[in-house]
Design a binder for these strands. Structure first.
Length: 588
RNA sequence: UGGGGAGUCGCCAAGUUGGUUAAGGCACUGGGUUUUGAUCCCAGCAUCCGAAGGUUCGAGUCCUUCCUCCUCAGCCA
């Protein structure tokens, strides 16, 4: 047995491997944590951190979270959960012009909805980068004092010109060799509002000839007179992401700072900055390390913030929570579940390879979760009348339908049967196509949970459209009675009693885009919008569906999964959204 | 064309320091069960790891060359 290889845990990936190795080697065994973010002095006065690792999910509050973020959330919070660590929710709010409280609120909602929590005992690990502005300012002065940063008076255009190109080295700024005293005075004047927006910028002093352009004296502080959602008008200079992010991680004692691939080139600066600040005694060791994974690419949707904002602002959709949007708020209204997203992220894995996940993979995950959890109900979406001519006019009888075929303990409910029923238009064919085994002239079919009926005729209106189908029922064949199987029929259709039906609004959603890669090439992605991405219908539902709680999810048998819309449903007037159809192997 | 990454079955993705027949999931294809053309069950599904050379008793794992794709030149994140 000892010679057998250990089984590979499901969901094994390179980041888990790194974390496991770090824990095994005790890289963070002596790491301290004073109970809150802080500098070296603060943390060194604390205890050895009980959290084995600290990760963080650091969104910028400048938009709504989407499915791509779900991948990152499950990664970061999941790692913390699996390795006895904690994960911080941190708002990376260093650019006041784009950020707002609305986004902060929607983001916290979404993370909670996915089932995560940033509390660790009494510790509440919800942070804002803007709360570290004082320390960031101090760090900037520290860099200046050690000759690692300078104030540049070049214009943005000049800076760009002197940055060089991918193949050519950049040129030093004429202001690169200002004295420490002058830099300090200038930087303080920037802070004190004595310089116009854009007139001066603080730059790290590294190497204008570096092959890595991010090391060619990156800008780390800019003058920007803007009202900040958290700090108000206290500051007129704001740190850049490049500078702020590593510091945020270090102050929070993050061990594994996980981001997407496009930040790979940034890692050398991340390490450079933290190294300089740690050697100056400002930051506690061990320092956080950055790791990168491939972001999610999903077909048939757009996940870029710019495009999502455009869809919302130009009203191509009804808002950030439009059920067709890949935002988490939209997915929630669509009826997608947190469990489904968990399954999805487990299934797609984490690696550094660029990949495209087909949208159907997500839908499959939602189906899988919903199949297990959603109770069954009956709904006729495109009704035509079925009259059982040999059924007594005023008779009503109870039929019993299981609430969940896989869970008998959920019992059965009563659905009333009477002479006139609504059935699905597509369940009747005057001239059946090959393989069709539902209702057809002279054909027999079972009314699900009721009787076997034989079609005896049908009526059409002036346009040739079938309006009524006639049939006769076989009294001995009621489901659940001994004679039920006396006649075997292949077809089995659902129905709702006309006299008892609850008519209601149902929204059938489809993909927002008709192309797998919206806007691919030089097209405008808006041209790929699917004009039929939603159709609002009046459906006939079984009576038990009239009063249901918002966000209740059901499988409408033979159709798919539906959710009671949490926004537009009124008491006694539920509106349903189609989450996803059932798989349908029948090639029509 | 400089730097940094990535290329393993249709789509994802494991593959420790090179060691026997290349995990797993999804999809797909057969077959079975089924009062949802759903679910479920069973079986099948890469002599091959971007390509070509090389090292080795032995290579997806090491070396060389080449190819393809992604990414970086914001006072965005």
């Amino acid at each position: 047995m000892a010679s057998e290889k250990a089984p590979i845990p499901l969901g094994s990936n390179f980041i888990r491997a790194i974390v496991e190795k770090d824990i095994e080697q005790g890289v963070y065994h002596t790491r301290k944590w004073a109970g809150s973010p802080g500098d070296a002095a603060h943390q060194s006065a604390g205890q050895v951190d009980q959290a084995k690792i600290r990760t963080r999910f650091p969104p910028e509050p400048n938009g709504y979270l989407h499915i791509g973020h779900a991948k990152s959330i499950f990664l970061n919070f999941g790692l913390a959960r699996d390795y006895a660590g904690v994960c911080h929710l941190r708002f990376d709010d260093t650019n006041p012009e784009k950020e707002s409280q609305e986004y902060v609120d929607s983001i916290t909602d979404a993370v909670k909805w996915l089932g995560f929590d940033w509390h660790n005992g009494r510790e509440q690990n919800l942070y804002f980068a803007s709360n570290y502005f004082d320390f960031m300012y101090r760090s900037a002065e520290c860099l200046i004092e050690h000759g690692h940063a300078y104030v540049d008076s070049q214009t943005a255009d000049e800076m760009r010109l002197n940055r060089g190109s991918l193949t050519e080295a950049g040129k030093n700024s004429p202001w690169r060799d200002r004295s420490v005293a002058e830099n300090l005075a200038l930087f303080r004047a920037m802070r004190d509002g004595q310089h116009a927006d854009g007139s001066l910028v603080l730059r790290a002093k590294i190497d204008m000839a570096s092959a890595n352009i991010n090391l060619r004296d990156p800008a780390i502080y800019r003058v920007r007179r803007a009202h900040h959602h958290n700090t108000g008008d206290k500051w007129c200079i704001y740190p850049m992401y490049t500078f702020a992010h590593p510091i945020e991680d270090a102050l929070e004692q993050i061990t594994h700072s996980i981001c997407t691939l496009e930040f790979e080139d940034q890692r050398p600066f991340y390490d450079w900055l933290l190294g300089r600040l740690a050697e100056a005694g400002l930051l506690a060791q061990p320092l956080p390390k950055q790791y990168e994974f491939a972001r999610l690419n999903l077909t048939y949707v757009v996940l870029s913030k710019r495009k999502l904002i455009q869809l919302v602002e130009e009203k191509h959709v009804a808002g950030w929570d439009d059920p067709r949007l890949p935002t988490l708020a939209g997915a929630r209204r669509r009826g997608y579940t947190a469990e489904g997203f968990k399954l999805f992220t487990d299934r797609i894995g984490v690696s550094k390879a660029d990949s495209w996940i087909d949208y159907s993979t997500l839908e499959d995950c939602m189906r899988e979760v919903l199949n297990e959890s959603a109770e069954r109900r009956i709904a006729v979406l495109d009704p035509i009348r079925l009259v059982i001519d040999n059924y007594p006019v005023d008779q009503v009888e109870d039929c019993f339908a299981p609430n969940h075929p896989l869970k008998p303990e959920l019992a059965k409910r009563v659905v009333p049967l009477s002479r006139e029923l609504w059935i699905e238009r597509e369940d009747f064919m005057e001239e059946p196509s090959k393989g069709f085994f539902r209702l057809m002239p002279d054909g027999m079919v079972r009314l699900r949970y009721g009787y076997v009926v034989k079609c005896t005729g049908f009526e059409k209106d002036a346009t040739g459209k079938v309006t009524v189908v006639h049939c006769e029922y076989l009294p001995d064949t009621k489901s659940g009675t001994p004679g039920a199987d006396s006649i075997k029929v292949k077809g089995n259709i659902h129905w709702v009693s006309v006299a008892h039906a609850y008519e209601c609004e149902v929204r059938l959603y489809d993909r927002l885009f008709k192309e797998a890669h919206p806007g691919e090439g030089d097209k405008d992605f808006l041209d790929d919008i699917n004009a039929d991405s939603v159709s609002v219908i009046r459906a006939q539902l079984e009576p038990s569906l009239k009063e249901v709680q918002a966000e209740s999810r059901f499988q409408f048998e033979r159709h798919g999964y539906f959710v009671a819309d949490k926004k537009d449903s009124l008491a006694g007037k539920t509106v349903f959204n189609r989450t996803v159809t059932l798989r349908d192997a029948w090639q029509k």
